[in-house]
Write a protein that binds this DNA or RNA. Structure first.
Lengths: 139, 139
DNA sequence: ACAAAACGGTTGCAAATGCAACTTGTTGTG
DNA sequence: CACAACAAGTTGCATTTGCAACCGTTTTGT
C-alpha cells in the first residue's frame, strides 16, 4: 500500500509540476507556500508548516526565495517579535490567481478522469487515511 | 488534490519508515529495490525502474549500496552484456522475509484502520488515478 | 555491412533536503 | 525578578536528489 499511494502521489506531482515549475520557475514547496499565503492573507511560517506538514527549514528557504522574487512580503510581528507575518505582494497575488486557475483546471481534469463520485470518494479516503495515520504516530 | 494525496503519501511513508530505516539502515529506495528483487527472483535494474517508477540513477545507487551490504548479487547478463541481473543473497532473502513481515503487518493495520472495504476501495482508486495520469502524460 | 540511433547502467555535479545547532524573543515557575 | 524551558525562524553541513553526460553494447535503417 505504501508503494501504491506513493506512486499515485508522484504521478500526480509530476503531472502538475510543469505548470508552476517550467511556467514560473517555482519549486513545489514555493508554490505551496504561495498558495497557502494567498488563501490565508496573512500567515506566519510556523502556521504554514502546520498546514502543509512541511519542514520549517524548507518553508523558511522557500519564503526567502519568494521574498527575493518580490512575490511575498514579510512584516515583523506586532505582538510577538519572533513572528514574521507573510503577505502576498501585488505581483504575488497575480501569480497566485494565475496558477490557481491552472490548479483548478487540473483538479477538474482529474475529476473528469475518475468520475465525480469516485473523485469525491478518493478525497474522503485520503483524508481519512491521513487522519488515521496521524493519530497512529503519536509523534 | 495534489496536496491531499501528497500529504497522505508522506504520512504513510513516515509511518513505515522506522521499520526499514531505523531497524535496518536502509533508505526507502533501497527497501523498494530489495522488495522487488525478492518478489521477482532475478531482475534487471531497468525492470525495477519500470516497476517502481523510479529514476535509474536512484536505483543504480541503491543497488550499489545493497551489493556493498552483501544483500544483493549482480551477475553480468548472459545474452545481453549490458544487463546486470540481480538476485538476493541468503542474507538478503532473510532480510526481505523479515521486513516483509512488518510490511504485511503494517498493511493489515492500515486495513483495520480504514475498514476492509474502504481499504480495497482506496487501492482501486489509487491505481485508477495512477493509470489515468500515466496516459495523460504522454511522456 | 556499417553508421547512426537507442539502450542499460554509472557517474559528476549542482541543487534540494533533513537534521540539529543556533539566535532571538517569550513564557512560566520558584 | 531571575532563570530555565520553550518557541519562531535561520543557517551550516552532510547526505540525497535529479539531470545530463557518458561508456560500452545492441539494434535499426539503408
Amino acid at each position: 500500500m505504501p508503494f501504491l499511494i506513493n506512486q499515485a502521489a508522484e504521478a500526480t506531482s509530476k503531472a502538475f509540476q510543469p505548470v508552476y515549475r517550467d511556467g514560473y520557475g517555482l519549486s513545489r514547496t514555493q508554490w505551496r507556500v504561495l498558495a497557502i499565503t494567498g488563501r490565508y492573507q496573512a500567515i506566519s511560517s510556523r502556521d504554514i508548516c502546520l498546514i502543509a506538514h512541511e519542514e520549517k527549514s524548507r518553508v523558511s528557504r522557500a519564503v526567502s526565495a519568494l521574498v527575493a522574487e518580490g512575490l511575498i512580503e514579510k512584516s515583523g510581528g506586532e505582538v510577538d517579535k519572533r513572528i514574521e507575518l507573510l503577505t502576498l505582494s501585488a505581483k504575488g497575488r497575480d501569480l497566485y490567481q494565475e496558477i490557481g486557475q491552472s490548479a483548478q483546471a487540473f483538479d477538474a481534469k482529474l475529476q473528469s478522469l475518475l468520475g465525480p463520485d469516485r473523485d469525491a470518494q478518493l478525497r474522503d479516503l485520503l483524508t481519512d487515511l491521513h487522519v488515521a495515520l496521524d493519530q497512529l504516530t503519536p509523534k
